Amino acid sequence: MENSLRRILVCEYVTGGALCNGPLPTDLMDEANAMVAALVGDLVALEGIHVTLCWDNRLSPPSFPSDRVALFPVAPGEDPEARWRTAAALCDAVWPIAPESDGQLGHVAALFRNTGRTVVACASDAIALASSKTATAARLAAHGIATIPTVPFGTMPSPAVRHVVKPDDGAGCLDTFIVDDIAAWHPPHSGRWIVQPLVEGEACSLSMLVDAAGGVRLLGCNRQKVGRGDGSFSFHGVEVGAMEHRRAAWEPLARAIAAAIPGLIGYVAVDLIDRPDGPVVVEVNPRLSVGYSGLSRVLGWNPARDILALFNTTSADAGREGAHV
């Protein structure tokens, strides 16, 4: 089928200029750069694809071995969202990458949808649900999927020797604390905090491709490098494909998650804890994740082609939000 999406705007929140009028978060920069490098590299490996990349011009310009990547700078003093809309007007489709924190992913996806361009993103309802760890846990549990019992901070949590406290809409390991005495703990800043029992096991993730009908292809079974220290977790990257021996056990889980959350489409990542009695879901990320980095190398084929095909405007109803309604 002919691909009508030739000019792709890649807009990653941290490196793409969203924070051009404030400090850059160094703790997210490595992950942001890894996702941008992997995605842009895969896109320009496809014949006929030209990429425009939104870029905070305070950062060193990335180097790509292609003349089909154009930087679209966003500078301090400018309105990043106005610049993004201008960039979108130059392209056929937009591929946004943003954290769920403070509704950022949902906001950015809606902003680009309002430009009339094809947006490579999950449906707004799916993004909203998955952006809340409390709502996600409740939805998955209602569908019989093993997940961590999750309650708002201040509510009586499940009995446990130790608990984990984190923002309800947090990203990665940021502000994720291991607490021995939950009754004496106080949040370091305001926000919607949640409490979960500390579940022991191996930190892992799924990389999956979901189509408009809810069909699932499990792309990668990954191990996460997560450390503990000083009462908190720290994230040190993903070993893509390191858990392939668990594929048979995890494929039914991937299908069940897609069925439980209508509106997931394209690349979706799932964080989980693998235990002897089976996997326990931590969260669902309705967006590109660090697990995408190196995925094409492990697979031996280019997943960007298949993801774009789901949103190709020449495919009947592909990628429309109503596809899961």
Rank of each mutant, 00 (worst) to 15 (best):
S289I: 04
A98H: 14
A123L: 03
G319H: 11
P23F: 02
A87G: 10
P159I: 06
L253I: 03
I194P: 10
R117N: 08
D277G: 02
H163Q: 06
N114Y: 04
D271H: 11
E2V: 12
C173F: 05
I182V: 13
P262I: 02
R85D: 04
V165R: 01
D79L: 09
A38N: 03
L43C: 09
L198Y: 01
H324S: 14
A110E: 14
N21Q: 06
I182G: 04
P96L: 03
H189P: 10
P23R: 14
L288I: 15
G106S: 14
H186N: 07
D102Y: 10
W301A: 05
A248C: 03
V226E: 12
M156S: 14
L53V: 13
A248G: 02
H107L: 10
L24M: 02
P157R: 12
M1K: 02
P149Q: 05
F153W: 12
E81T: 04
P279H: 15
N222M: 01
P61I: 13
S232M: 13
P252D: 05
N285V: 08
T313P: 15
V119D: 01
F311K: 07
V281G: 06
T147W: 13
T134N: 08
A323L: 05
T52I: 13
K225T: 15
F177C: 06
R113L: 06
G291A: 01
R287V: 04
G291H: 00
A109P: 00
I273A: 07
V270S: 00
A87W: 03
R297T: 14
I8D: 01
N33P: 01
D175R: 08
F233D: 03
A123K: 06
S293H: 13
T115H: 03
L209R: 09
P96N: 03
R255M: 04
G263Q: 12
L53D: 07
S296M: 00
N285G: 09
